[in-house]
Design a protein around this nucleic acid. Structure first.
Length: 152
DNA sequence: GCCAACGTTGGC
DNA sequence: GCCAACGTTGGC
């Protein structure tokens, strides 16, 4: 099993929204992020990160419930994420389905993540990094979960 | 709202 | 294949 981190703007889709319904993670239009999704397996766990908002940080945990499959929004001309280079016969973009696992009682803030030397290699914490889907090592997963349990 | 950092596009 | 211009991301 592998671990991941995925960013979402809570004003658009938050951990509370995920709690009410499983979701298809469509609209990813970045090659690196797409390739990470293609490497996801059923049962992988995901830190759900809230970006571009008041309370930035990891809000909870989600689970991957499907492997990557073609993102149909990419060939719908009316869709905001339409890409003329992607077709049903030759899809260019992919998505996975996620379900809610847990919401942390308190968001693990970005600033508190930056305080842990064990996490300094996470792409998330690198200056200027904009990757929206990234792998998390087992060590990083454990360190962050430990951080979370201490805040209860 | 600002702006630095990044990925993508397209002219050459 | 280079690189300037552009659009987007995302913390502050």
């Amino acid at each position: 099993m592998n671990y991941w981190l995925m960013k979402s703007e809570p004003d658009v889709f938050s951990i509370d929204d995920l709690k009410t319904k499983t979701t298809s993670w469509d609209g990813v239009r970045n090659y690196q992020a797409r390739n990470h999704m293609k490497n996801m397996k059923q049962g992988d766990l995901v830190f759900f990160y809230h970006s571009s908002c008041k309370n930035i940080g990891i809000a909870g945990i989600a689970k991957v419930i499907t492997e990557a499959y073609p993102d149909h929004t990419s060939w719908e001309p009316s869709n905001h994420y339409f890409d003329p280079k992607s077709t049903p016969d030759n899809p260019k973009w992919f998505m996975v389905d996620l379900e809610f696992v847990r919401k942390f009682p308190k968001i693990i803030s970005l600033s508190s993540l930056k305080e842990s030397p064990e996490l300094k290699d996470m792409p998330l914490l690198k200056k200027g990094n904009r990757l929206s889907v990234m792998p998390v090592s087992e060590i990083e997963w454990q360190v962050i979960n430990r951080k979370q349990s201490h805040t209860i």
